[in-house]
Design a protein around this nucleic acid. Structure first.
Length: 475
RNA sequence: GGUCCCGUCGUCCAGGGGCCUAGGACGCCGGCCUUUCAAGCCGGAAACGCCAGUUCGAAUCUGGUCGGGACUGCCA
């Protein structure tokens, strides 16, 4: 039997990291088992769903490196894979269920139901008890599924093992609203049946809805899929990932300069691992050993620090040419203008050194900014720490004098010239070079000095040494 | 309140009766390297929630307890 799995985002916002991880696990499971991965759009909420969100979500999925065999935009044997186009089908199912006696119309008011609920609670009855088939029935109102009370609902969850619910704890839930619009439970279940979904891997928040979905599926005369309820993702505060405190959408991470490979790798680690030792791995490696049954049961806290570290790992192991291509837009952004042709060459020259010390792409702009714009303000902490020391004016003046005569303006020559100079002056290399670094780059933290000067060029380097010298008191 | 789920370093993951004086990763601390910052290398602190029980032996099995979470809509 071919494994068929799906991810069914609602296009009411950007792709949430929790949904992204669920998508990733489904994709992995399909790829690990030569299965079919389906993307469908759960857009039953006509008010909040938009085409833009749908496109954004699909873009995010593709950005993550996921591809789908059937679904929205790629098509397949089941049409467009959008729930909004299938309302007739859902209504048809709901009415069939009424005809077969598995479901019923209910036109009681919410107040009426609320009163029943409170009375039931007072009597210590199970919450599910308060909503049951009324005696008199009109073909109006909502349609509810009637929960058979004869046996517990038991299922083998791939990650939770055996889970069971008592029927009296499940209420007769609404499947079709009074306005004819299906609820999530109906639409999702009908789609899973119609599309031949074999495994449903989704967030643990849906575990309490699972008995409803199973009963609905059985009422339709079908066999329920195998379920796998994934542990939830929390923010660093130990609470559910919230838009208020955390970056929750994948686009946030893309814009912040994270690499899709790193995000993919990191998300895999939240609830799963290749083995006890491997931390960095590719999509293929993950797909080769992935199994839903190996997913952990406990919720995971999303740790941005570790993601950042991992992003640095991926940046460092990246082909330098690709790094430049990816980093360039961030340089442009931080500079506020595009680089000129010669400037791009300069960037090329320095970029391997920047690559080693970058964790997030936008940092590149800060690191190379000194090459493309003049220094107007020195980093104040750096100036304070380095430039106010005794002997700094002399060091700068001596460096200017010495370097004026240098013709081969490359890192190697600068290295030997400046070391020789500092030796003559009997000044430590560390102490002597730092003032020049601040003069050249504006900060005590920068790419390597000699390479930076080489990239800047002789005239501009000397001018900057002079500029800094001029801001220091004369001696 | 009710139903259900979960409980190994601060965090993620490994370990599923003896191989555990509990392993790896991030972070943290210290050192080396070094022109700064990173990176790299070396080292360190750091956890089986608690109580019983089963057993020759429990992080691993059972019960209880405590803690955390999800759900409890004509949202999805």
């Amino acid at each position: 039997m071919t494994i068929r799995v799906r991810i069914a985002p609602s296009p009411t916002g950007n792709l949430h990291v929790g949904t992204a991880r669920a998508a990733l696990f489904n994709w992995l499971y399909a790829r690990a088992n030569d299965g079919v991965f389906i993307v469908r759009s759960d857009d039953t909420d006509l008010e909040r769903s938009t085409k833009e969100y749908e496109e954004g979500i699909l873009d995010s999925l593709r950005w993550l490196g996921l591809d789908w065999d059937e679904g929205v935009e790629v098509g397949g044997p089941h049409g467009g894979y959008r729930q909004s186009a299938r309302f007739d089908r859902y209504r048809e199912v709901a009415e069939k269920l009424v005809a077969s006696g598995a479901a019923y119309y209910d036109d009681r008011s919410t107040e009426e139901l609320e009163g029943a609920r409170q009375r039931a609670q007072k009597e210590g009855l199970h919450p599910g008890h308060y909503i049951r088939r009324p005696d008199s029935q009109e073909s109006a109102g909502v349609i509810r599924l009637s929960i058979p009370q004869d046996a517990p609902i038991v299922f083998d969850d791939l990650v939770r093992d055996e889970v069971s619910f008592e029927p009296q704890d499940v209420d007769d839930f609404v499947i079709l609203r009074s306005n004819g619009v299906p609820t999530y439970h109906l639409a999702s279940t009908v789609d899973d049946v119609d599309y031949g979904i074999t495994h449903v891997a989704r967030g643990e928040d849906l575990l309490p809805s699972t008995p409803k979905h199973i009963l609905l599926t059985r009422a339709m005369g079908a066999v329920e899929p195998t379920y796998a309820h994934l542990p939830l993702l929390f923010g660093t505060d130990g609470k559910k990932l919230s838009k208020r405190h955390d970056a929750t959408s994948l686009t946030d991470y893309r814009d912040a300069g994270y690499l899709p490979d790193a995000v993919f790798n990191y998300l895999c680690l939240l609830g799963w691992s290749v083995d006890g030792d491997t931390t960095i791995f590719s999509r293929d490696q993950a797909a080769a050993s992935f199994d839903l049954a190996d997913v952990s049961k406990n919720p995971a806290i999303f740790d941005p620090e570790k993601l950042k570290w991992m992003n640095g790992e991926y940046i460092r192991s990246m082909d330098p040419a690709i790094f430049q291509e990816l980093a360039l837009p961030f340089v442009t952004k931080s500079l506020g203008r595009p680089l000129t042709e010669p400037e791009v060459d300069v960037f090329w020259e320095i970029s391997p050194l920047v690559q080693e010390r970058t964790k997030l792409l936008p940092e590149v702009g800060d690191q190379v900014g000194f090459l493309f714009s003049e220094i107007e303000n020195y980093d104040s902490a750096s100036w304070q720490k380095v430039m106010t020391k005794d002997g700094v004016p002399e060091i700068l003046a001596a460096a200017i004098a010495r370097l004026s005569g240098v013709d081969n303006w490359d890192a190697g020559t600068l290295d030997s010239e400046l070391r020789a100079l500092l030796a003559e002056m009997e000044i430590g290399v560390g102490k002597g070079l730092q003032p020049m670094r601040v003069a050249i780059t504006g900060s005590s933290i920068s790419p390597p000095l000699f390479e930076s000067m080489a990239a800047l060029g002789k005239d501009r380097s000397l001018a900057r040494l002079q500029q800094a010298r001029d801001q220091l008191p004369a001696t």
